[in-house]
Each structure stands twice: as structure tokens, then as C-alpha cells.
């Protein structure tokens, strides 16, 4: 029994050492990036201090750090609706794009009819669309979710159509010889082969959905990181403004990271012929 205990203790220690090694390895790998970032922050602090730049114009990193501490409550309550809007927009925008792409691939008429309309919607500047949607849907969550969704929609639609069509003609011939139905071809060939294309689009959508939610919150909203940016700007609360911007950026990076992790777990194959 004691033997078993000691052996597990040993593997536990081994695991800890391995974990430390891995952490050290990651740190070493990203050392240039970390040093550059720290260096820039130090330079920023030095420039603000040396030229005696007033805080309302450009706060120093230390001021921003204090703003995080003093406004933690405000930042937290305004971050939650923005996360919700960006997430729901991401889900619905991409879902509609994926379903539409599947329809386009199976119906040339549908593609001819609706693809130009999709391009036209894409051509409308999102910032011009926001007031229209606020007038229609009021000042709640709905217009923000729609704008976050719209901004995700187009890149996913384009990539997904391309991805669903990326199956080789020989592959489709094979499925025909096997008397496969269109549904079987979709599930067994088209959807799996579209995954790399889909994830390329989802990574773009992950960051732009946060941007869409924030832009939507600029138009007469009373909550969210976007509203906080507007309010902090007009009240010359520059440290709070910078803190909000940092949070928005971190949010986008986290979403991007989540999509990348899911991609790495799902796609372990390489396309045919890539050697």
C-alpha cells in the first residue's frame, strides 16, 4: 500500500516539474513579445512623466491601473451586457450565414437571388446602420445583438460557401458512384471539408462581434462598454476610457483564443495533397 502511495506521490511531483518546465518553455518562447510589451508600457509612462502631459489628454499606465481599481464595479456591470451582445450576435450571425451558405450550395437560384443582397448589406457602413436599427428595435439588447450578428454574417457566408464548394469533383463522383443522397454528401463530405474555411471566418467574427456590440452601444445606449467609452470621453475621464478600451480588447482576444482552441481540437487533418 505504502508503495502505491509513494509511486503516486512521485508521479505527482513529476507532473509538477513537467508543468513548470512547460510554463518556462512558453515564457521563453514568448520572451521577445513580453519584453516588447513591457518596454512600450515603460516608455509610455516615461513620456507622460517627462513631457508633463495632462491626465485628461493621455493618462499614464499607472493612472489607468488606478482607474481599474477605482471603477471595478462600473467596468464589471458594463462588461456583462457587451459580452452577452457579442456572444449572441456571434451565434446568430454565424448560424444564419451557415444555413444560408448550405442553401446557396444546393440551389443556384437562391444563390443568384440573395448573394447580391448579402453583398449590398455588407456595403452599408455598420455605423450608419446602427441608428436605423435603434429606431426600429428600441434601445434594448436587440439592436446591439443584430449589429454584432450582421458584422459576423458576411465573412462567414463567403467563406462557408467557398468551403462547401471545396470538395473535389472526384470526391463528388465517388459519392455519386456510391449512390449517396444530397443529405449524405452534405454531412459526409461538404460540411467536414468546409471546417477550415468556417474557422478562418469564425476567428474574424470573434473579434468583430465585440466591435459590433460596442459600436451599437454608442448610439444612445445607457449600458455596455460602448456607452462607457462615450461617457468617459465626454467627461474627460481619460483613465477610465483607457481602462474600458483595454477590457474591450481583452474581450476580443479571449473570444479569438476560444475559437482557436476549438479549431485545434476539431481539425487534426490536413487537406488532401498537402505534403
Amino acid at each position: 500500500m505504502s508503495h502505491v502511495v509513494s509511486s503516486t506521490a512521485k508521479t505527482e511531483a513529476d507532473r509538477k516539474i513537467a508543468l513548470l518546465d512547460a510554463t518556462a518553455g512558453v515564457l521563453a518562447k514568448h520572451m521577445p513579445a513580453i519584453s516588447a510589451a513591457v518596454g512600450l508600457v515603460v516608455l509610455w509612462q516615461f513620456v507622460v512623466w517627462f513631457f508633463k502631459i495632462p491626465t485628461f489628454m493621455a493618462p499614464s499606465p499607472v493612472d489607468v491601473a488606478y482607474a481599474f481599481r477605482d471603477n471595478a464595479g462600473i467596468l464589471w456591470t458594463n462588461m456583462l451586457p457587451t459580452i452577452l451582445e457579442a456572444f449572441l450576435g456571434f451565434v446568430f450571425g454565424n448560424l444564419v450565414a451557415i444555413l444560408l451558405a448550405i442553401w446557396f450550395v444546393h440551389s443556384a437560384t437562391a444563390e443568384k437571388a440573395f448573394y447580391p443582397i448579402a453583398v449590398f448589406i455588407k456595403a452599408i457602413p455598420i455605423i450608419a446602420l446602427a441608428p436605423i436599427l435603434v429606431l426600429i428595435f428600441g434601445n434594448g439588447l436587440a439592436p446591439k445583438i443584430i449589429i454584432a450578428g450582421l458584422i459576423c454574417f458576411f465573412p462567414t457566408l463567403v467563406n462557408m460557401v467557398q468551403g462547401l464548394k471545396s470538395a473535389s469533383p472526384a470526391m463528388l463522383d465517388l459519392m455519386r458512384v456510391l449512390s449517396a443522397s444530397n443529405t449524405e454528401i452534405l454531412w459526409k463530405v461538404r460540411l467536414p471539408s468546409s471546417m477550415p474555411f468556417l474557422f478562418a471566418a469564425l476567428k474574424i467574427a470573434a473579434t468583430s462581434s465585440v466591435m459590433g456590440a460596442i459600436v451599437a452601444e454608442w448610439i444612445g445606449s445607457s449600458f455596455g462598454l460602448g456607452a462607457l467609452i462615450i461617457e468617459a470621453t465626454y467627461n474627460f475621464r481619460s483613465p477610465l476610457l483607457y481602462a474600458t478600451v483595454v477590457i474591450a480588447a481583452v474581450l476580443a482576444v479571449v473570444l479569438f483564443f476560444i475559437v482557436s482552441v476549438i479549431e485545434a481540437r476539431m481539425i487534426r487533418w490536413k487537406p488532401a495533397g498537402s505534403h
Binding site: 473535389s168 472526384a170 470526391m171 449512390s179 443522397s181 449524405e184 459526409k188 467536414p192 487533418w269
Partner: peptide, 26 residues
């Protein structure tokens, strides 16, 4: 075919089994 036309996300045995999974009406 001239090209092996294997499904790149499926391993060897699942590629060999593909004809048994499709063409349910056949």
C-alpha cells in the same frame, strides 16, 4: 479514381467503411 479521393479527416479504416455508410436507398 486517379486521385485516391480519401476523406482527409477520416482514418484509414473509416475511409474503407465509407461505402457502407452512404447510399441507404441502394
Amino acid at each position: 479514381f486517379q486521385d485516391a479521393t480519401l476523406l482527409p479527416w477520416r482514418n484509414v479504416i473509416d475511409n474503407v467503411r465509407l461505402p457502407l455508410e452512404v447510399g441507404k436507398h441502394a
